[in-house]
Design a protein around this nucleic acid. Sequence first.
RNA 1: GGAGAGGUGUCUGAGUGGUUGAAAGAGCCGGUCUCGAAAACCGGUAUCCACUUUCUGUGGAUCCAGGGUUCGAAUCCCUGCCUCUCCGCCA
Length: 420
Amino acid sequence: MLDLKFIREHPDLVKEGIKKKGDVDRIDDILKLDEERRLIIQKVEALKNKRNVVSEQIAEIKKAKQDASTLISEMNSVKEQIKDLDENLKKIELELNKLMLQVPNVPHPSVPVGNKPEDNQVIFSWGKINEVDFDLKPHWELAEKLDIIDFERGVKLTGAGFPLYKSEGAKLQRALINFFLDEAKEAGYVEVQPPLMVNASSAIGTGQLPDKEDLMYVIERDELYLVPTAEVPVTNIHRDEILSESDLPLKYCAYTPCFRREAGSYGKDVRGLNRLHQFDKVELVKFVHPATSYNELESLRSDAERLLQKLNLPYRVLLMCTGDMGFTQSKKYDLEVWSTGQKRWLEVSSISNFEAFQARRLNVRFKSEGSKPEYVHTLNGSGLALPRVVAAILENYQTPEGKIIVPKVLHKYTGFEVIG
RNA sequence: GGAGAGGUGUCUGAGUGGUUGAAAGAGCCGGUCUCGAAAACCGGUAUCCACUUUCUGUGGAUCCAGGGUUCGAAUCCCUGCCUCUCCGCCA
């Protein structure tokens, strides 16, 4: 959510941002409602003031044991007027709020304008794409042959997109999770283990509700939502809080399974581990001082990149264009790892600065000595999502015999160096 | 799941219809005192909104949330949420 005052004072800037993102512009409607709203507030508050003053007079009169019935009957009409105006105001604020929630975040000036995948800029590449003289296999073939991921039994147990990891496959999951968490700890993130289900307020806070309800698994009976990413519970940790300036930046990391309905996906995108309904991820979340948020974005990015470098997986960094970066972000990078067996790039991390957009919605502020509370900036990034990293490891580290050499940094976590 | 109690400011905790945005204490900040500290004493200590101003000021709202009663609600009524205690169940 943007600041209403900011919209009021810089409507053109906001409109331009919306245009760049390719969203619908309802700014004029918002400004009109805002004006109506403020008019009514002035009227109703004048009446409420009268109510307060006269009520006190009535109290005085009654204390003096005199008759106050004239004033009381006079106040009856004031009461009615207040009720009408309040109802009206509520309606307007409801509508205004609805529109406000539809206004996307304004992109940062450094973000390229565009709406096609080609408009995303590759700003950095790392690692060598291996060229070998044997036939490189996709991970699902390797995994099946090595009997480390059982996709079919996953289907039996639950359905497509719920793989059953087995033996070295299961251990590799644990190894990656621990590796990612240890690295995050090293980089100064506090580990948290949040609930895997959240209530509606939390889902609204990070923007999954009301619009993206289809993305989540809903437990209707208890009105709970399975988390689509740790971002949801972790970013909500400080909802409705005023932090102290000296606490910033707050950095959290969390491992959680992620549950996504992914309605409407099909084809090569969902083959193997490419897109799942349940997957594991370590998420990095920061609450920072507004003045530092773009530096924090860069350091978040390098925290995520370091993981791929240590795993020695070739990857590239994309600066996402205005049309491709989503509703809530001001600036977003994607990290894509090279999938040797599929000969394509797979997204393993998405790193964003939301500026105050989420903080406003979540009502997370900070206060420094002697000044008013101010909204923090929030950022998050995957560090990292497991399945595609696993896919890339299997494919990039495969031998002609179909074995997998485990990346060195993982040895102390896996306890084995080769699979197969 | 059953029975009961309760949700007040940073915290503890008063307050059952009329100067209660809210007693008191603690904490915190500033000051006096001190070589310095402690103690003592004095002062300050919420957030949101509107208007006006930009040194400020005026008004409105907020005692879990939402509705209701009333001229007037922290205080009475209803609904929801949450917490605690006892019982039941249980990794």
